[in-house]
Structures are given as C-alpha cells and as structure tokens.
Computed example of a mutant assay.
Amino acid sequence: MLVVTTNDIPGFRVVRHLGLVRGLTVRSRSVVGNIGAAIQIFFGGNISVYTRLAEHTRQEAFDLLVEHAQSMGANAVIAMRYDANEIAAAVTEVLAYGSAVIIEPVTDGSSASTAPPGPWSGR
C-alpha cells in the first residue's frame, strides 16, 4: 500500500477514486504516565512519555487508515493528512485521512519512472 501526502504520485496514474478513508483512535494519558511526564517537565527537554504516546497513537491511526483503504480495494492513498483534537482533559483523538485510489504505473513510453521506495510505501 502506497500512502503519500501529495495529490499525485510520480510514475503512476490514478485510474479510479474509491473515496475517503480514515483511521481514528482516541487515547488518554495514564496517571502513571502523567507522573513520569511531570518529572520530565520539571527537568525540561523532551517529554519522552508523551512523545511515545503521540507516536504510538499516530501509528495506530495510520494502520487503521491503511486497513480501511485495503478493505475498499485500494492500492494507494493520496492526500493523506493527520488531525488531532483534545476531546476532554487528557483525552485526545487522532485522525488519519486521505483519498483511497487505485493506481497503475505509467507505461506510455515516457521517461517517467516508478516511485522509489519510501518510508510510507510499504516496500
């Protein structure tokens, strides 16, 4: 599954738009995590407890996005974005969303090459 933040993919053409896909997760910080973060806040710098929570939450939303796209028959997601909102004190939602598409390599004899493997391509 190729997932990109752009509206097109060099070396590929969109042959079918399947619609909006999303991955949503809602997370809260634990009391233990808040205590650990409070200690880190006291000393300053990166709050690694929250960094790990944020990264885990974004990854979960991303994985759900990919799962949703695959269930629709997509082989790519274009215009992927993240959004996050605080629902209540210490409760945050993270939404990953984009457009599910079917793509195919450009084979018109031009010099366009296929997209190189990248961190979001799964290759």
Rank of each mutant, 00 (worst) to 15 (best):
Q59G: 11
G36W: 11
I41G: 12
I78M: 02
E60F: 01
V14D: 07
R22Y: 11
R16Q: 15
R81S: 12
S99W: 08
H56T: 13
E67L: 14
R22W: 03
A100C: 09
D63Y: 04
E86P: 02
T57D: 03
L65M: 15
S48E: 11
V77A: 11
N75R: 11
V101K: 05
T57V: 09
G98F: 02
S71Q: 14
L20K: 13
V26S: 03
V15D: 05
V66E: 04
Y50C: 11
E55D: 12
E60D: 14
Q70V: 01
T51R: 15
V31L: 13
I41A: 13
A76G: 01
G98M: 06
H68Y: 13
V101I: 14
A76M: 04
Q70S: 02
D83E: 06
A38W: 07
I87N: 05
N85F: 00
A37I: 13
F62M: 14
I41P: 00
A74E: 07
Q59F: 04
A37Y: 08
T57F: 01
Q40H: 11
A84P: 00
A69E: 12
A89Y: 08
V31A: 11
A37K: 15
D63P: 01
M80V: 04
L18T: 08
R52P: 00
N75F: 07
I78Y: 00
A100P: 06
A89G: 06
A79I: 02
S99E: 15
G23H: 07
V32M: 05
Y97T: 05
V94L: 06
H68W: 04
G36H: 11
F43M: 13
V49G: 07
E60Q: 14
V21F: 04
A89C: 03
V66G: 00
G23D: 03
R22Q: 14
V66F: 02
I47L: 10
I39N: 01
A90S: 12
V101T: 07
S99N: 13
V31G: 07
L53D: 02
N46R: 12
V49A: 10
Q70W: 00
T92M: 10
E86S: 12
T51P: 00
L95W: 08
V101M: 03
G36R: 15
G73H: 02
V77S: 09
A96F: 06
G73E: 04
I35S: 06
I39D: 02
V94G: 04
S99A: 08
V49D: 05
F62K: 04
A96V: 07
S28A: 14
A90H: 13
V26W: 05
L18F: 10
N46G: 00
S99G: 03
V49S: 07
R27H: 10
A90I: 01
E93H: 10
I78A: 00
Q40Y: 10
N85K: 10
V94Y: 06
F62Q: 02
E86R: 14
R27S: 10
N75V: 13
I78H: 01
